[in-house]
Structures are given as C-alpha cells and as structure tokens.
Simulated assay, not measured.
Amino acid sequence: MHARLSSLPVRSPSAHRVLLATFLAMALPVCATAAIDDGVPPMQTPPTLGAHTMLNQSEGEGSSPAVTSAIHTQDSGSSLLVLVAGHADNSADPTDSYDNTWKRVGEPVTYNGYDGRFNARAFIAIGAHGGKRHTVQVLKAGSPNGEITIPFIEIAHAGKLQDVAQNYPTPGVTARAANKLTRAWQGMVGGSDTTSTLLSSGTVTTTGPATLVAVWLGEAYIYNMSAVPGDGFKVIDSYLHLPPNSGVQCAVAIKQVDKAGTYSVTWNDSPAQGAILWLFAFQAP
C-alpha cells in the first residue's frame, strides 16, 4: 500500500487551487441560471373588459323568462358579472346558456320609497365557461310582466373578485332643501328639473392590475336623467331615457388600473336622486 501511494504523482497546493477554481467556474453559472429561472413567476395576462350587454324590460311589458341579448364570450378564463334590478318578487337567481355556477355577492338591496317592492342583486361566475351566443336569463315568477334591468358583463382573464363595495348614498339634508327650492322655482317658470347631486361609491383595494366595474341604479320616479361617472371611469352601457310606463334606470362604467391601489368613483346625476352603487375589482388569478 505504501509503495503504490508513493508512486502516484504529487500535485502542489497551487495546482489544487487551479483545479478547484476551474471546477467552480464551470459549475456556478449553471447553478445560478437554474436558481434565477426557478424564481421567475409565469407572466399573467391582466384582466380586461370582454363582451357586455344590458337587458331592459319596461313596466307592464316584461316577459318571463327575461333573456339578455346573445354575446360572444371567451371559452374559458373569464369572470362574469350580472346585476338583476326590478320587482323583489322575481327572486330567482340568474342562469346562463353555458351552465355556469352563479354566486350572489352580498344581500339584495331594497330601493327606498317603494314599500319594499323593488330591489337589486349582484351575481358573479368565476372561471366561467363561454362561447358564441352566450345569454343570461331570469325567471319572473312573481311579476312576469314587470320592469327589470339586467346588465351582463364579461371580464376576460379575471380569475377572482379581489374586492367589492356596495353602498346607497342619497342627497344630504342641505342638498335636498336646495333641490326642493330649485324645483319649485322651475315649476313656477315652466322650466325643466336641472337639479343634480354627487354620489360616491365605497372603496375597493387591489393588489395589482385590475378591471374596475361600477354600477349606478337610480331610485327616483323620473323618465329622463343623466349619470356621469368621474375618476377616469367610462360608461359602457346605460338605460337613462325611460318610456312613459317606466323602467329600472341603470348605468355601468369601467376603469382599467395597472397597479395596486385603493379606488372609488363619484357619479354626477341629474335630476338629483339617490342611487344604489356597486364597485367591483376583478384581477387575474
């Protein structure tokens, strides 16, 4: 044993250092590259507005089921939002032509001033199936010919409802008094109602890029009105000029945001009235 060991070539300490440095130079780049590649998350497509429509049936001229116009939604990867506003005794949940599962968001909101006869409800379907001629319908068991409004909105590439705010602001005491005086004066001189009010939603908080959907549902018994959102929101669907037999007024607006933050929207509506407000924040999964 000792003779064989003595026959092996002996390397100096400096030679060992050279060999070690060469080995590390070859091995480290591979390890570093693997670590960097493993730490990079896959890129996600930010959410965006997809297809959308709004069904409006006026009072006394409705039908059951109430069915929206057909839209072309994505085969997969979208979230769907539906609002149902009208007679409270038409209490069925929405269904759709692609058999998605709908979840109600919060509790029904009852309109002020109508003895509990009208309310509004919100529903979402996350990770929905879709395709051509996609419709939503609501059975109207209580008041089949009654007024109803159903916005139907697709948010593409949205895997979750990150946050939601719902509130029901009305003009304050001072604003109501001023509006009453203005209306009285305009009535005396034969003018139209030019009163207005600012109504602000609750806030939602996002953790990244998001599609914000704001919904305005006015309460007053009037036929022609405006509802204009601020804060960078743009109206995509509205029903603000009603027939003589009335209907459920509504406006839907969206805003794309590209970073985390806290957001709200203020609506300027005229003539002045209260409104049921929702604000939804949809994000990628």
Rank of each mutant, 00 (worst) to 15 (best):
G191D: 14
D237A: 14
R104S: 04
T22M: 11
T182E: 11
L83A: 11
E147D: 11
A34W: 08
H87S: 14
P209C: 03
T266D: 01
A220N: 12
R11L: 13
M43I: 15
G202D: 01
N90S: 01
T110G: 02
V248S: 09
Q57C: 00
H157Y: 15
T206R: 02
V257M: 01
G113A: 10
E154S: 05
A85W: 02
I254K: 05
W216V: 10
Y111C: 10
N167Q: 06
S226T: 15
Q137I: 03
T68K: 09
R176M: 12
E154Y: 06
G190L: 04
V235K: 10
D99Q: 05
A88M: 07
D163F: 11
G62Q: 07
P94I: 00
F123D: 06
D93S: 14
L277N: 08
A260T: 10
T95D: 06
N224P: 10
A88G: 05
D115A: 09
L49W: 13
Q162M: 12
D37F: 12
S238G: 07
A227D: 07
D75F: 12
A210K: 01
R176S: 10
P42V: 14
A253S: 04
A21R: 13
P47A: 04
V204S: 02
A227F: 00
Y263Q: 00
H87C: 08
L80K: 10
G187T: 06
W267C: 01
L217R: 02
L181G: 09
I126Q: 00
L161E: 07
A281T: 08
L199P: 03
P271D: 08
L242A: 10
M225N: 11
A122W: 07
Y168F: 15
L20S: 13
G86I: 03
N179A: 09
C250V: 06
D96V: 03
K160I: 09
K103W: 13
V84C: 05
A275F: 05
G116M: 00
I148E: 01
I148K: 07
A158F: 03
T211W: 07
N167D: 02
A165T: 03
L242M: 13
V67H: 03
P94C: 05
V82L: 02
G116W: 00
V213G: 05
K103D: 13
A66T: 02
L83S: 10
L28M: 15
Q273E: 12
Q283S: 08
W278R: 15
